[in-house]
Write a protein that binds this DNA or RNA. Structure first.
Lengths: 106, 106
DNA sequence: CCAGAATATTTGCTATTGCGCATATGCGTA
DNA sequence: TACGCATATGCGCAATAGCAAATATTCTGG
């Protein structure tokens, strides 16, 4: 396993493994709207634990998918505005594959 | 972690974790052309081991991404022709994100 | 039936991942 | 400074994934 141009292939792999976790994917989906969301909000909406949520956000962050900003006692996370198009395409496709939140039909 | 409509979300997660492995992703990329490829070929091209390659192909298969067919002493794998569009979109995006094999420019 | 090629699978092992719990840290206010 | 809220992190644990080596299985040709 040394032939492919790992240099970059591994970035893709990293992105994929980051996405391949329910809580993380759900969080990213929420952040994908571009807005800011604090850990506490995500925690509530995803019925997760403080430590778990924080940890997962850390993973998303170190994968470069999201950005954080300290605002008083909160930390606001949001979708990294500088993602490479290829990465955006992947996340878009993944989120599109998720079951929608079923708005009521007309 | 019980609120989201897991039923289907987990399928996406499964697909993602399947893709999140270098050897598997590289193999799928090869199979993505729609043609048939035996394990021995993949093994060679990816510089992998017999057991490793076989196992990874098994994972791709049980994830529903590929199909296999026995042909004499070989087993020919190929991209599952009946993938749901959403899955195809994901794999397309992922493969597009991989470093290309650099054809010589004009 | 036998030998050999191509695949699959079992086994034992190591590394990684996700979790909960407890604790630490940053920040605002009294 | 002390307290409380929001978030991060250290730690030990259980489950999972991936690997190599050995063995089993399937099929072909003789």
């Amino acid at each position: 396993m040394r032939i492919f141009s790992y240099t970059n292939m591994m970035n893709v792999i990293a992105t994929l493994s980051t996405l391949a976790e329910p809580t993380r994917l759900a969080a990213l989906r929420i952040l994908w709207d571009g807005g800011e969301h604090c850990v506490c909000e995500l925690m509530e909406r995803l019925e997760s634990t403080q430590s778990r949520m924080s940890r997962h956000m850390g993973v998303l962050k170190s994968a470069g998918l999201v950005t954080d900003r300290r605002d008083a006692q909160w930390v606001r996370y949001r979708r990294n505005p500088n993602l490479p198009p290829a990465t955006i395409a992947i996340v878009d496709a993944v989120i599109a594959a998720l079951p929608g939140q079923k708005k009521k039909a007309a």
